[in-house]
């Protein structure tokens, strides 16, 4: 993507700071910005959560619908995570079909939750030919860098906030929600940016503009669940191994933050 002249100035500034081992907001290299999770903001949804990470703001909503199970998995329900870059979230986002950036964000957010087996899909089975489908939609409301972690954590928090509609005499009653959606596993996400020779966690918007490479790692405390390297830069094996280690350390604090807000 072409760089605006104002971006060049910011990139030079970010790089000159990093040369002195500093970040624009005086964070440590592997510190997250302040993260605020607010679950249950949308009453009509089966579950929801808003996540603020620095200036980034995303909202995840969960809808649970009755549907036919997939033919290759007739004894379980289904789930889908999608993320959307709303045109109001930044001047560079436009209406229209999703861009490759939006599709990547969406699929990486889905992959973490899916590979983490977070939802007990068997518990979504109702009777032959009927199962619950869980739809997690993450809306990006303000783009301030590091959407990958904000979206994953919002999706996870919204799932933990979700209650099941009831199914009686062949009908779904959304007004009557009793049981919680059964969650088997909690994954958390950590995204690193490489700028010149420096690597840092949770890039801000300006740091993302300056980034050469990006690495997103999700884990559940015992296993790595998904990874995605992005942008044109590269990582060495040793760097990846170190960042995965940091990702495991961060899981502890992120998980307790998510659980505290359930």
């Amino acid at each position: 993507m072409k760089m605006e002249s104002i971006d060049m100035i910011k990139v030079n500034y970010i790089k000159s700071m990093l040369a002195k081992n500093m970040r624009e907001d005086s964070r440590g290299m592997f510190d997250f910005r302040n993260m605020r999770i607010t679950p249950g903001t949308m009453g009509n949804a089966e579950g929801s959560a808003q996540v603020e990470l620095g200036r980034t703001k995303v909202l995840a909503g969960v809808k649970i619908a009755l549907e036919a199970p997939m033919t290759d998995t007739p004894d379980q329900g289904n789930m889908t995570v999608a993320a959307e870059l709303l045109p109001l979230a930044h001047s560079k986002y436009e209406s229209g079909p999703p861009t490759p950036e939006a599709i990547e964000l969406s699929r990486v957010t889905d992959r973490g939750i899916r590979a983490g087996s977070c939802i007990d899909l068997k518990s979504l089975f109702i009777e032959e030919g009927k199962a619950w489908g869980v739809y997690i939609d993450v809306y990006v409301l303000n783009y301030g860098g590091n959407l990958f972690d904000a979206c994953e954590i919002a999706a996870m928090s919204a799932l933990l906030n979700s209650t099941m509609p009831t199914y009686e005499d062949g009908k779904v009653i959304h007004e009557n929600r009793k049981n919680r959606l059964k969650i088997d596993n909690i994954v958390t996400s950590t995204t690193f940016a490489k700028i010149g020779g420096s690597i840092l966690l949770d890039p801000s918007l300006d740091e993302e503009i300056a980034s050469d490479a990006r690495l997103t790692v999700t884990n559940d405390g015992s296993s790595i669940r998904s990874m995605q390297k992005g942008l044109r830069g590269s990582f060495y094996q040793k760097e990846i191994e170190e960042l995965v280690g940091i990702s495991f350390n961060k899981h502890v604090e992120l998980k307790s933050l998510i659980e505290k807000r359930v």
């Binding site: 992959r111 899916r114 590979a115 296993s223 790595i224 669940r225 998904s226 990874m227 390297k229």
Partner: peptide
């Protein structure tokens, strides 16, 4: 580098 499923370090 892309990955999904589960791997130990």
């Amino acid at each position: 580098l892309q990955m999904d499923g589960g791997l130990s370090r």
